[in-house]
Amino acid sequence: MTEAQIYDALTEVFQDVFDDDDIRLTSGTTAADVPGWDSQAHVNLVVAAEMRFGVRFRTAELESLHNVGDFVQLIASKQQGAR
């Protein structure tokens, strides 16, 4: 997957989790920019992204996810590792 494809797919994940088709993501999007992105929604995002991309985040990695850019980088690196 290219980075652009990951952004597109991750946008769909966010739209589904927050039930909001208007969400647009940039690398700098943080929890403060998305209404409802609290700690519970964060776990939902992590699990939904794991299911969507077929990856599993390590416990330590979860602690370094602060914005959408971090999500995309982590997913990209895991998909590369899988190749």
Binding site: S39, Q40, V43, N44, V46, V47, A48, M51, F57, R58, T59, L62
Partner: peptide, 14 residues
Amino acid sequence: PVRWHQAKQLVSPA
């Protein structure tokens, strides 16, 4: 166990 350590969830959201 990851969900437990992360959020004290016994049952995973999945």
